[in-house]
Design a binder for these strands. Structure first.
Lengths: 159, 159
DNA sequence: CCGAGACTATTGACATGTCAACCATTGACC
DNA sequence: GGTCAATGGTTGACATGTCAATAGTCTCGG
């Protein structure tokens, strides 16, 4: 299988062959995800939402009425706390999120979607689904399942 | 296959099932790559190099003696020009990279590794390879090839 | 030769990601 | 009941990623 130069090696105009299958797979992951992230970002851009912001909005929709504490949001993404705080600052400034200090445990700050925020996420569902589907349209359903399985397995080792 | 909740859905504590296979695959990609990026970053951190910086150093090593113009580096990564300029500023400040305006085409700025930069990249080869291998150790060689193939295919559709 | 438009790179402005340091609150232990 | 470590969150500082605007250079047609 090393007879011919891999597709990825050509893309990045790399002369030397990959040093290992692991290296090639790792680089392929990074590169593919970068392209995907950009594709999603382009869909969200007209709505003035970044991918991270969209992610938070979706998480908050899932949380429903009782809201979520700040750090809980961070756990569901894979991000450090400081980033979440400032991200919420901006979402609050745009009127999509409300925050209130929790009365039972005054250390916590609970976050909800505002009705405007809820409308926005709902409006975004369809175009985002569409973008995900388009990104994966080169794969059959069978291949999508296989990809999902392989990724699950990689993550198992990474934790 | 929708009978049981997917591994990913559990990880992010998501109640509702994924709306499509494409969505699940896309999220799996993002999440897996994030974890991988972190793993690599941890390896590079003791050397005071970020993943992006490492990427540029490796590209410059590949370029060899004649150097590379700034934007050409950007092309080989997937990044916009302004980021590259500032990234190179920092690499130059650390003494790993030299830049000189090209005499034939004075619009271009050529970049090379310094000997110190070359040493650094070489020193990093082994631990980075090791990290890539570790990240992928949950997959057989057969599965790695399959993953590489599926990713190639996704990228084909994303461009 | 000269002026228009293209190309290469840089700067400014802002969102994001990360670390370390910090503040307030809580809860547990003496 | 008072001290103290742990918890939840914010702030500061800095690297990065992106867009728009700009400066310098090149090229080509007239």
């Amino acid at each position: 299988m090393a007879d011919e130069t891999s597709a990825l090696a050509k893309e990045i105009r790399q002369q030397r062959p990959f040093r290992s299958l692991g290296q090639e797979a790792a680089l392929g992951l990074m590169r593919t995800t970068d392209l995907l992230r950009r594709a999603i970002a382009r869909v969200l851009e007209p709505y003035d939402v970044t991918p991270q912001q969209y992610n938070v909005l979706r998480i908050l929709r899932g949380a429903g009425e009782q809201g979520l504490p700040t750090l809980e949001i961070g756990d569901r993404m894979i991000e450090q706390a400081p980033g979440i705080t400032r991200l919420l600052d901006r979402l609050e400034a745009k009127g999509w999120v409300t925050r209130k200090r929790c009365t039972e445990d005054r250390r916590q700050v609970l976050c909800w979607l505002t009705p405007a925020g809820r409308d926005l996420v709902q409006q975004l569902d369809e175009p985002v689904d569409q973008a995900d589907a388009t990104a994966m349209e080169m794969l059959s359903d069978q291949e999508k399942r296989e990809l999902i399985r392989l990724l699950d397995q990689v993550r198992t080792g990474l934790r």
